[in-house]
Computed example of a mutant assay.
Amino acid sequence: MFTINNRLKSIYLLSFLLFIFSCKNESSNQKQGLEEKPTVEVNEILQDHKDSVYKVKTDTLSSNSNNEDTITEPKEEIETPKKVELDSTKQYVYLTFDDGPFKGSKNINKILTEENVRGTVFLVGYNAFTKELKQHVEDYKQNPNVDIANHTFSHANNKYKHFYSSAEGVYNDILKNETTLDIHTKYVRLPARNVWRVDAKKKGDILKDADPAADLLAKNNYYIFGWDYEWSRNIHQLDNPEKIYEGIVHRLDHNRTFEKNHLVILMHDDMFNTDQNAEKLRQLIVLLKNNPRIVLEGVSSYPNKVS
């Protein structure tokens, strides 16, 4: 009898300890669950070989309209390209900046104003998600030296193969960006693809997957700009402006451009997020201005009869 009672006491004690441990574990899990609230966290801008889009950790943001198959109607009151008298004795350089608004937008806008030269910003609607970034867009619009252009709303979410699998989806993403940023021009650069549909001429990227989307856009009177030369992105140490200037002159003089005597240079917003790098942009502009043969223009002045 004594043995049985001891065994019962041991069983009761073990059961009690297991119950206490279970309660503590459940309480801990509940506490942890309360602490793990969904948050929106913005990381540094993603980089690939060509372009970028912010990565936002949330499922509540608008999804990529590439999933939509129905083409929506383009917005009305789109500005028509300017008719500019071009001088056949001159060479034209078009300063273009992708992926804004971002940290470099303020410096870009300031330098274009102070140097009184034209440039073009290819904007991503998905990136304009704070009050400050939206203000950069408005500041650009108030600057007569800036052409506003379309770099899609989603920037393909950096998933280019999927993005370009639907020409209609790309078109819808362009239209969505027009509405989001209130863009009134039809100048477009496709994400991570050097594609042209301008001046009754066309040129595809080496990957070819963006061609159907570019053809659809051109059919709807959009002007798709690639680039002739790139100031390679390195936000920590930019190449010397003199080197970039020499590259520009070499390509113009040797007719290594999409349109003879017209060179479009690709740069990225985040390259100029520091005062030091912004001054390198100014140095390049001064070098170009001091060349009597070169004229700095926005893409609205590019020879632009669409096929």
Score class of each variant (00 low, 15 high):
residue 291 N to R: 00
residue 87 D to M: 04
residue 268 H to K: 10
residue 242 E to T: 14
residue 302 Y to K: 03
residue 299 V to K: 03
residue 307 S to V: 13
residue 248 I to S: 06
residue 226 G to V: 04
residue 3 T to N: 11
residue 170 V to P: 09
residue 29 N to V: 08
residue 232 S to C: 06
residue 301 S to D: 08
residue 68 E to D: 13
residue 304 N to I: 02
residue 102 F to S: 15
residue 133 L to T: 10
residue 114 E to V: 00
residue 46 L to G: 06
residue 22 S to W: 06
residue 52 S to C: 13
residue 204 G to D: 15
residue 166 S to N: 15
residue 67 N to R: 10
residue 96 T to P: 10
residue 200 A to L: 11
residue 180 T to W: 02
residue 300 S to D: 09
residue 286 V to F: 01
residue 222 Y to V: 02
residue 205 D to A: 10
residue 263 L to E: 05
residue 58 T to K: 05
residue 64 N to R: 11
residue 145 N to R: 01
residue 210 A to Q: 05
residue 261 N to E: 02
residue 80 T to H: 04
residue 44 E to I: 11
residue 128 A to D: 12
residue 120 T to W: 12
residue 101 P to C: 07
residue 128 A to S: 14
residue 28 S to R: 13
residue 126 Y to N: 04
residue 164 Y to S: 12
residue 16 F to M: 12
residue 161 K to H: 04
residue 254 H to N: 15
residue 62 S to T: 14
residue 105 S to Q: 03
residue 153 F to V: 08
residue 138 E to H: 02
residue 244 I to C: 07
residue 131 K to T: 14
residue 196 W to G: 06
residue 307 S to I: 09
residue 292 P to W: 01
residue 291 N to C: 04
residue 43 N to T: 14
residue 186 K to L: 01
residue 204 G to C: 05
residue 186 K to G: 02
residue 48 D to S: 14
residue 166 S to P: 12
residue 117 V to Q: 06
residue 12 Y to M: 12
residue 4 I to K: 12
residue 37 K to P: 00
residue 223 Y to F: 11
residue 40 V to I: 13
residue 88 S to H: 08
residue 105 S to G: 01
residue 203 K to H: 13
residue 208 K to M: 14
residue 162 H to D: 10
residue 3 T to V: 09
residue 8 L to V: 15
residue 161 K to I: 05
residue 188 V to C: 06
residue 117 V to F: 02
residue 154 S to H: 02
residue 132 E to A: 14
residue 14 L to W: 03
residue 109 N to K: 05
residue 139 D to G: 03
residue 116 N to C: 06
residue 124 V to R: 03
residue 116 N to P: 00
residue 4 I to Q: 11
residue 197 R to E: 08
residue 273 N to F: 10
residue 212 P to G: 04
residue 251 R to S: 01
residue 96 T to F: 04
residue 206 I to R: 14
residue 162 H to W: 13
residue 6 N to A: 12
residue 116 N to S: 15
residue 58 T to S: 15
residue 298 G to A: 12
residue 194 N to A: 02
residue 299 V to H: 02
residue 17 L to T: 04
residue 130 T to P: 06
residue 43 N to P: 00
residue 256 R to A: 03
residue 248 I to T: 07
residue 49 H to A: 08
residue 247 G to E: 08
residue 285 I to C: 05
residue 239 D to I: 09
residue 275 D to I: 13
residue 251 R to G: 01
residue 185 T to R: 10
residue 132 E to P: 04
residue 195 V to D: 06
residue 109 N to E: 06
residue 36 E to K: 14
residue 225 F to A: 00
residue 104 G to M: 07
residue 42 V to I: 15
